Simulated assay, not measured.
Amino acid sequence: MSQINTTKEWSNPTPAGLVALAVACFCFFALLSGKVTGEAIPLLGVWLLGGFVVQLIVAIVDLKGGNTTGGNTFLFFSAFFMLVGGIEMIMKFNATNNGILLDARIDGWAWLVLTIVLYLWTPAFFKTPLVLTLIVLSLNVALPFITLMDLGILSKSYAAIPAWALLIAGIFGIYLSAAIIVNTAFGREVYPMPGPIIKS
């Protein structure tokens, strides 16, 4: 019971948000690499909707605590990667099965904005723990390929590149979530947590 927070402050919700990110990354790896078929898409949509709930809560708590970088990142991840992604997966699957044509290139235009934003925000992550920086850098590899494939500029034959980059981001997400939880519980560094590339 020693881990119960007896003060009125909220604890760090980032580990839960990282788990949601890892789930999404692993599932997209499975889809993009062909480990699962397109019939898994509605189920992936539901998992993303669950991730939306987690990441929205993380974003609100982070923003309340003054974490501008983490709070805003989780906020737009929760909205666009999770909520919109989840709903779109289910919609696209139903549209395909009902013979309805959708011009999904619009997704590429939205992903273009998200890719540019993450690239422009990346320097802020150089002041965060190294593992978080590596997650963002892995996403920086994946997102341009997803964007260009959705825009129809690159063929789906490039899907293995974002698939593996997302898997790497997911692995780092699992590790960082575990390090925060375990190190906090023990009050010391049980799992190594390398510091930021740029120190304040």
Results as ranks from 00 to 15, higher is better:
residue 186 F to H: 14
residue 136 V to L: 05
residue 9 E to N: 15
residue 142 A to Y: 06
residue 94 N to K: 14
residue 68 T to G: 13
residue 85 G to I: 04
residue 57 I to C: 08
residue 11 S to I: 08
residue 126 F to I: 07
residue 142 A to P: 12
residue 57 I to A: 06
residue 118 L to C: 08
residue 143 L to F: 14
residue 48 L to V: 07
residue 144 P to K: 10
residue 189 E to L: 13
residue 135 I to R: 03
residue 161 I to N: 04
residue 125 F to H: 07
residue 132 L to R: 02
residue 188 R to V: 11
residue 83 L to E: 11
residue 31 L to D: 01
residue 71 G to D: 10
residue 108 G to T: 07
residue 129 P to L: 02
residue 141 V to K: 04
residue 49 L to M: 10
residue 6 T to I: 09
residue 144 P to D: 10
residue 180 I to V: 15
residue 48 L to S: 02
residue 84 V to M: 13
residue 116 I to H: 11
residue 95 A to W: 15
residue 113 V to T: 06
residue 114 L to N: 01
residue 196 P to S: 10
residue 173 G to Y: 00
residue 18 L to H: 02
residue 45 G to S: 06
residue 35 K to P: 01
residue 56 L to W: 14
residue 122 T to M: 14
residue 117 V to N: 10
residue 17 G to Y: 02
residue 197 I to E: 03
residue 38 G to N: 07
residue 127 K to G: 07
residue 19 V to D: 00
residue 69 T to A: 15
residue 56 L to S: 06
residue 113 V to Y: 11
residue 39 E to D: 15
residue 148 L to S: 10
residue 7 T to Y: 08
residue 116 I to D: 12
residue 115 T to C: 12
residue 108 G to H: 03
residue 131 V to M: 08
residue 78 S to I: 02
residue 78 S to T: 08
residue 62 D to R: 06
residue 93 F to C: 10
residue 144 P to R: 05
residue 31 L to Y: 07
residue 38 G to L: 07
residue 6 T to Q: 10
residue 95 A to L: 14
residue 94 N to G: 11
residue 34 G to V: 08
residue 51 G to T: 04
residue 200 S to I: 08
residue 84 V to E: 12
residue 168 I to C: 04
residue 137 L to M: 13
residue 27 C to P: 01
residue 159 A to I: 02
residue 19 V to S: 03
residue 15 P to E: 01
residue 31 L to C: 00
residue 181 I to G: 08
residue 193 M to D: 13
residue 77 F to S: 00
residue 110 A to V: 12
residue 56 L to M: 12
residue 84 V to R: 05
residue 31 L to M: 05
residue 83 L to D: 09
residue 103 D to Y: 03
residue 194 P to Q: 10
residue 97 N to T: 05
